[in-house]
């Protein structure tokens, strides 16, 4: 308890510092959220967790870095997102489409295998080296300040692009035909099929979409975190926990869950040695799940209907 009072006291004493931690947390929170949304999109149409989600992030940023040597940054990013979407589509068509009523477990194991294969191919293509895209605005030392809080302009890019993606996806699922069809699949695959929706195409589309948003997230975050062939694994783990934390299948909940985890991680550094950062974040999450197994925003009844 005294610890809590200490933190509150610190906050009041130093409001700038408080927001500095929030800013650090929000950057990562949004990245976790985007990865979690990628999980959710595929989960909704297929009922599986795609463990190759982190690899989409890695592929997006590594491809963009390679292309950036030959073309302007914006074009390189657009192309790399398209290429990663294509990889997502090929992956689904080659490994999932032809399966006759596959079990959830079988498909999940396929995604684990694919994630390993993609990582190994990336290692063969790009090697071990750590690379990075250039900062979109300014450079490594640029810093913008709002009321005493200093952040890199790239943080604004991450927050901005990720917010646009989240809003864009919501609009797509609400107002566009394919988006609505995907939601129908999510609600009930059998009935959607009986209504004349091509559910197989919807599954492909879901892989394409989550590959695309993962790749874009990988590009915007690359200047901050650097990119490497194995960057996808920790992101996938965090993204997965965030998806569960928010309530599997719910994109807006993923955003809330992502921000919560990011900020928790950031504040844990304030009060504890930073070596415990991951341990603290994960322990808090375990506690939440212990009391709300359906996730913070999930409903119990809905949860009990899910296959996984």
């Amino acid at each position: 308890m005294p610890l809590v009072f200490c933190i509150i006291f610190d906050c009041i004493m130093n409001i700038e510092l408080f927001f500095q931690y929030v800013a650090a947390g929000v950057t990562y929170g949004f990245i976790y959220a985007i990865v979690a949304i990628g999980f959710n999109i595929i989960y909704n149409t297929t009922g599986i967790i795609n463990f190759a989600q982190g690899e989409f992030v890695m592929l997006g940023s590594m491809t963009a870095i390679t292309l950036n040597a030959f073309m302007p940054l914006s074009l390189a990013i657009v192309l790399s997102v398209l290429i990663t979407m294509l990889v997502g589509a090929v992956m689904e068509i080659l490994f999932f489409r032809w399966l006759e009523s596959p079990s959830v477990l079988r498909m999940i194991i396929i995604t684990i295998g694919l994630s390993i294969i993609i990582r190994e191919i990336a290692l063969a293509i790009w090697g071990e080296n750590v690379r990075a895209l250039p900062y979109f605005t300014g450079n490594e030392v640029s810093s913008v300040s709002f009321a005493g809080v200093h952040i890199s302009p790239q943080v604004l890019w991450v927050v901005g692009i990720c917010s646009v993606m989240v809003v864009g996806l919501q609009v797509f699922f609400k107002y566009f035909r394919y988006g609505r069809q995907m939601r129908a699949c999510a609600a009930n695959r059998e009935v959607a099929r009986l209504c004349g929706i091509n559910t197989k195409n919807m599954v492909t589309l879901s892989f394409v979409l989550s590959a695309g948003i993962g790749a874009l997230a990988g590009c915007v975050v690359s200047p901050i975190t650097y990119s490497q062939y194995n960057m996808g694994v920790p992101l996938a783990i965090k993204g997965f926990t965030v998806a569960i934390l928010g309530g599997l299948g719910n994109s807006m909940a993923a955003v809330a869950g992502g921000l919560l985890l990011g900020i928790l991680e950031s504040f844990s550094v304030w009060v504890m040695p930073s070596a415990y950062k991951d341990a603290i974040a994960i322990s808090i999450m375990l506690l939440i799940l212990f009391f709300r197994p359906a996730g913070l925003f999930g409903r119990k009844e809905e949860f009990s209907l899910k296959e996984f």
């Binding site: 800013a23 650090a24 991680e265 504040f267 550094v269 304030w270 040695p273 930073s274």
Partner: peptide
């Protein structure tokens, strides 16, 4: 005096602590 993970990709929160 702080220890960070060798795989850390962002140390913003840690340097904020240093600044404080």
């Amino acid at each position: 005096s702080e220890v960070y993970d060798k795989k850390a990709t962002d140390l913003t929160a840690l340097v904020t602590k240093l600044k404080a």
